[in-house]
Simulated scan of single mutants.
Amino acid sequence: MNVGSLYRERYERVLFPVAAKLQEFLQGILSEMPRVDRISTRPKSVERFIGKANATTKDGKPKYVEPLHQIQDQIGARIITFYKDDVTRISDEVQRYFHAIESKDLVPENDWEFGYFGNHHVLILPPDVVDQSFDKDLVPNCFELQIKTLFQHAWSEANHDLGYKPGLQPLESDELRQLAFTSAQAWGADRVFNELFAKRSAVRQAD
């Protein structure tokens, strides 16, 4: 059985129920957290998994030798919150409940560039979200969690829709600059809202 068929079996039999249980788990641990806009989980589609599994490096070699074990976002989770400071607060809380394989802030490589911003984690799936009747060989051992502000989420969704759908022509240089401009605006809006919230919180605490 090829990798695509194996993943399809995994997708149809275990990924959906595990993702649903994971969403309930995240909602439970963050139920008292203010300013959480939404929490969502989803299994990676078969088409996207196969596309990623077939990826190659710059020298033409396969990027993944064992994609079913190496691809870490077969289940993806997102937490969307209001302000930048909330991202750090939620990230710290989440890591109290999960063992992290990797945690990092994704930012453009150059300080003069604007593009994708987000807080990403690769976390071990807790036993509580996996039905004991599932074939353990079909259950991935980890999932990817993204924590973003509303502006970061809105920009990344629109950017993905415009630039990464299969069959679309690559964006031209001027179009890429337009996307960078909108990323800069989202970055600026996040700073303004975060600073205003911090000031108003300080006033409330002083009263």
Rank of each mutant, 00 (worst) to 15 (best):
Ser183Lys: 09
Ser103Asp: 15
Arg191Asn: 00
Arg48His: 13
Leu106Ser: 00
His69Ala: 11
Tyr164Val: 02
Ser45Gly: 09
Glu157Phe: 09
Ala189Trp: 13
Lys199Pro: 00
Lys58His: 13
Pro170Gly: 03
Ser40Ala: 12
Ala19Glu: 07
Ser183Arg: 07
Ile50Tyr: 02
Gly167His: 10
Ile50Glu: 11
Asp37Phe: 06
Arg204Pro: 02
Thr88Gln: 01
Glu157Ala: 09
Arg204Val: 12
His153Cys: 01
Val94Lys: 01
Arg89Trp: 12
Ala55Gln: 15
Glu47Ile: 14
Asp92His: 13
Arg177Pro: 01
Gly163Val: 04
Phe197Tyr: 11
Lys84Gly: 05
Ala184Ile: 05
Asp59Leu: 12
Leu15Glu: 11
Asn194Glu: 04
Asn141Ile: 01
Val203Gln: 02
Lys148Cys: 15
Lys52Ala: 10
Phe82Asn: 01
Ala154Val: 13
Gln27Tyr: 11
Gly167Ile: 12
Ile71Val: 12
Pro170Lys: 01
Asp207Leu: 14
Lys58Ala: 15
Tyr11Glu: 01
Phe117Arg: 15
Leu145Asp: 11
Asp207His: 06
Arg8Lys: 15
Pro34Leu: 07
Gln146Ile: 15
Ala19Thr: 03
Val65Asn: 11
Ser45His: 03
Leu179Cys: 06
Pro126Glu: 02
Ala180Asp: 11
Cys142Asp: 06
Tyr64Pro: 12
Val192Arg: 13
Ala154Asp: 10
Phe134Arg: 10
Tyr64Arg: 12
Phe82Leu: 13
Gln146Cys: 15
Arg204His: 14
Ala180Tyr: 08
Pro43Met: 08
Lys104Phe: 12
Val3Pro: 00
Met1Pro: 03
Arg78Asn: 08
Asp135Tyr: 09
Asn159Ile: 00
Gln95Gly: 09
Ala19Cys: 04
Leu196Glu: 13
Ser91Ala: 12
Leu22Tyr: 03
Leu150Ala: 14
Thr41Asn: 08
Glu175Asn: 02
Gly115Leu: 10
Tyr164Ala: 03
Val94Leu: 04
Asn141Ser: 05
Pro67Glu: 05
Val130Gly: 00
His69Cys: 03
Asn194Pro: 03
Gly51Cys: 00
Thr149Ala: 02
Asn194Leu: 01
Glu93Gln: 14
Ser133Asn: 12
Gln23Ala: 07
Asp105Val: 14
Ala158His: 06
Tyr97Asp: 01
Ala202Cys: 00
Leu106Ala: 00
Val87Asn: 11
Phe25Gln: 06
Ser5Lys: 15
Gln74Ile: 02
Glu24His: 09
Gln95His: 12
Arg78Glu: 06
Ile80Pro: 01
Gly4Trp: 05
Glu172Thr: 07
